[in-house]
Design a protein around this nucleic acid. Sequence first.
DNA 1: CCCTTGACCAAAC
DNA 2: GGTTTGGCCAAGG
Length: 109
Amino acid sequence: MGFNDQVWELCKKIPFGKVTTYKEIARALDTKAYQAVGQALKKNLYGIWSCNDERMVPCHRVVKSDGSIGGFALGQKAKIMILKEENIEVKDGKIVDFEKRMFRFKNQS
DNA sequence: CCCTTGACCAAAC
DNA sequence: GGTTTGGCCAAGG
């Protein structure tokens, strides 16, 4: 499995209604390649967002570490819309109640 | 190899 | 709030 696949696999673990950060994914992979994480998600292109398909990678749940939205292949607006569908509010370009919405991978080292 | 490109980060103005 | 700056590192040319 390459770096990209690992990023996608982790991304799939983010539960509905939660978000995580590029940094958190990098941490889980024990690397500091934050930017590379973003690139990996970009390459995925949402694997055609055929919902409920297990190939689907919910990369809209990955945001920046300061709670702002970050990038998205279809544009930030689309990302925000999808998040709203998961009951995640975005105000002034930031996740509302970011700390509570934050999902952390287990292996705090 | 070296160089450039990022869906980034954190600190510093 | 905003911008700049240096740093990070996988991937691709």
